[in-house]
């Protein structure tokens, strides 16, 4: 992956019309996310962080403001298949095998067919031997790994992860958090991760944007200067815990502004 595009949001806002009322999902946001970094968007449920991600993906149109990725609009990047997205629901096609689903990621991205790349990716996510299985035969964690492999199969310049581990049990999630980062670090794509797990955000990302309840604004912008790979000793470190505490505090202050005011 040669290109590591910056993501630039200028005055980006989004509101929806619901039953004739306007609901503001994202308040005007200005931020620049450096290329090749992983940025985590953290915030309470329903705060609009997934909407922000969909705006970056070009799946929704902004109500105001502009987003540029490298020198392109999200739509342009999407149209030349420069981005890949992993969803909360693995969204595997049930009639395709594991191999077929991963290969679909390449096909949709208009990359030439390459069974070796597909098989290597399946091996990389630890599913060798399961190539011929259907999604229904896999556990939730395995399905999510197939979805990650599918996202990587298209060789994206920008990887968008929308709570990809939310539906996975805690132990599996921990394992995926350990095993998967090296995959995309090696590929060097720019990436944005939406999560509401503080530890996950600190562990995976280079920078954390804490968002307020709806409409989403940037409440805190926290750099994560921890060394990589982030093995057990990093997770046990004081720096790691301090960062977790900082993010948690930022979340608390903005989630319950009333309680803060009362103190």
């Amino acid at each position: 992956m040669s290109a590591r595009p910056d993501i630039c949001l200028v005055g980006v806002a989004k509101s929806f019309g619901v039953d004739g009322r306007r609901v503001e999902a994202v308040a005007p946001i200005n931020v620049r996310l450096a290329g090749g970094q992983m940025t985590a968007l953290v915030g309470p449920s329903g705060c609009g962080k997934s909407t922000l991600l969909r705006l970056i993906a070009g799946l929704e149109a902004t109500t105001e403001g502009t987003i540029t990725i490298g020198a392109e609009t999200p739509d342009a990047l999407r149209r030349r298949a420069g981005l890949a997205m992993a969803f909360q629901d693995p969204a595997l096609l049930p009639w395709r095998t594991v191999e077929g689903n991963v290969a679909l990621g390449r096909a949709l991205a208009r990359k030439p067919r390459d069974p070796k790349v597909v098989r290597d990716l399946i091996a990389l996510v630890g599913l060798s031997g399961f190539e011929g299985r259907r999604p229904a035969e896999l556990s939730g964690g395995m399905q999510q790994r197939v979805a990650i492999a599918r996202a990587l199969a298209g060789e994206p310049e920008l990887l968008l992860l929308d709570e990809p581990f939310a539906a996975v049990d805690a132990l599996t999630r921990d394992r995926l958090n350990t095993e998967l980062p090296p995959l995309w670090e090696a590929r060097g794509a720019s990436s944005v991760l939406v999560t509401h797990s503080v530890a996950e955000a600190v562990r995976l990302s280079d920078r954390i944007l804490v968002l307020t309840p709806r409409p989403a604004r940037i409440a805190a912008d926290i750099a994560v200067p921890l060394p990589r790979p982030r093995g057990a000793e990093v997770l046990a470190s004081r720096a790691f815990r301090a960062l977790c505490a900082e993010v948690t505090e930022a979340l608390r202050v903005h989630q319950y502004p009333d309680t803060v005011a009362a103190q």
Binding site: L59, R79, A91, W95, L108, L160
Partner: peptide, 29 residues
């Protein structure tokens, strides 16, 4: 088909024809 399957195809910048071929038709079988 669930919304996620449509989003998946759209996230690769592919249009209604791909949606039909990869998602709708197999799902309707």
């Amino acid at each position: 088909a669930p919304q996620g399957w449509f989003d998946l195809v759209r996230s690769y910048g592919r249009g209604p024809v791909t949606v039909l071929r990869e998602v709708r038709l197999p799902a309707a079988l």
